[in-house]
Design a protein around this nucleic acid. Structure first.
Lengths: 106, 106
DNA sequence: GCACATGTTCGACCAACATCGAACGAGCAG
DNA sequence: CTGCTCGTTCGATGTTGGTCGAACATGTGC
């Protein structure tokens, strides 16, 4: 029981139900993450500005990853996270765009 | 305290945050309702096929209504529910279409 | 008035979730 | 090897959410 941290699990988008994606995108913190990723491309987890603890941050990244929304690349002790925009748009056409079109203010 | 049942509260869509809509659409039962409304137009609450109790059904209709997704019209003892497709598309362009484009199976 | 039908509301219950501090693991720099 | 950093995992906790049965409210028809 040790590979869990080194090899994050990323599902096939075909196996992800719509409810899981909607659920993942129904949290303000996770929406922030998605927006920042959309705007700035790949990013290191710790560099994103979020008003939550390390543990909570890690939790949200996991939810996004397991909903097929993000991909995680390992580089030493850092983790680079990016949007699976292509996969997502193939599975749920227009959904991510519609979400990203909404300004963060409301 | 008795008007609550007779005059359902429907918010201005401008006041509804994206998270509320995503949240409302992240439940399978509510997705079923939305799909049936999209396919068949206005419908009476009780006529939709849902494998839940009256109380649960009422709960889901309330969540959809308060998320600005549906409108409720009173007619005697019945309640006609319909999608606020126009309002929704104005507020969150493309979102409802993207959701409805996903087949119910998955 | 009196049933009847349609929905809502009220507790209650259990599952899921967001949050945190603390402990842990893995890689990197001395 | 020893710290240091980055991030995960582990409880624990409080909150929210879905579900139900039962009670209630409201309108319709006899």
């Amino acid at each position: 029981m040790l590979g869990a941290m080194t090899v994050p699990h990323e599902p096939e988008l075909a196996d992800v139900p719509l409810t899981a994606v909607m659920q993942a995108l129904s949290d303000e913190v996770r929406l922030c993450i998605v927006r920042e990723l959309a705007a700035g491309g790949e990013a290191v987890c710790g560099t994103l500005e979020l008003d939550v603890s390390k543990a909570t941050r890690s939790h949200h990244f996991r939810v996004l990853r397991e909903a097929g929304i993000t991909r995680t690349r390992l580089d030493g002790t850092r983790r680079y996270v990016s949007l699976r925009a292509g996969d997502l748009d193939e599975r749920f056409p227009g959904l991510l765009d519609a979400v990203l079109a909404v300004p963060s203010g409301a």
